[in-house]
Nucleic acid binder design. Sequence first.
DNA 1: CCTTAATATGAAAATAAATTGCAACTTATA
DNA 2: TATAAGTTGCAATTTATTTTCATATTAAGG
Lengths: 139, 139
Amino acid sequence: MLKTKLEEFKEKIKSSGLKITPQRVAVYKEIAQSSDHPCAEELYERLKDKIEGISLTTVYRTLASLEKAGLVKRVPTLKDKIRYDAKVEPHSHFVCVNCGKIVDLDYVPPTPEEVKELGDSLTCTLMCYGICKECQVDE
Amino acid sequence: MLKTKLEEFKEKIKSSGLKITPQRVAVYKEIAQSSDHPCAEELYERLKDKIEGISLTTVYRTLASLEKAGLVKRVPTLKDKIRYDAKVEPHSHFVCVNCGKIVDLDYVPPTPEEVKELGDSLTCTLMCYGICKECQVDE
DNA sequence: CCTTAATATGAAAATAAATTGCAACTTATA
DNA sequence: TATAAGTTGCAATTTATTTTCATATTAAGG
């Protein structure tokens, strides 16, 4: 039987000893539908008009909870805001060094096993830095 | 004729239209000798007793200048502080998701040419996340 | 070597992101 | 449905980084 993404979400939340709240569901749904690696503030902006009971603080705390539950992952950035990704499978990222935009790449980086000699690694990501199309036009 | 790293540094600084100051020399020497990807504050802590005229503000500004000159590179992090690396050649990083430590890896990631279809990329880094030896002991 | 214009500096204040304390409120198990 | 554990929003706080501004330093030309 095929589980929906939301059912899987609820299961993982529960098995992490967390409770299912409207705020957590909303944050997870929003991030799972996004492909632009939003940060806490962006998620809050997108949700505050749709969801009655939501605050920026809660978005921050929700992301921390989801991260612990393995439902979202931080994406390392060059700028200062922490960005999140609901795609937790191995993949790569293209980062615009001008605007900070992070785009998913299909390139599958070496597996932890392949990079074993380095230590006990959990995940590997190939980060590519460059100037995205839009930023090239601006100059 | 083989240039020393410091001579090369001075040349690059000058060709970037920047001036050679004791503070810049000190920051660059310190970061070039480090292998632990220090952040601005760590560099300041290491220098403040050795160099008379140095402030945290200047370290921040110096890193920005050196980055522009191509003498140092930011390393993307999962935590919030910006870390720097004086090793600007392509290489990879192992990141401890517990303590945030970033260790250089010899693994050479795909070149920009090999990842060309993704856009105009400048550099590629393979980021491996895991738990470093020291943090494993602690648990 | 002295002048000077451009640039760099330090201290303090300002910003911005993320976190925390606390009292009130939900959730989910008994 | 009671209730204990966990969650929430608000406001205040912390932490990293940047900016402002007055003073000082650098390097190129005379």
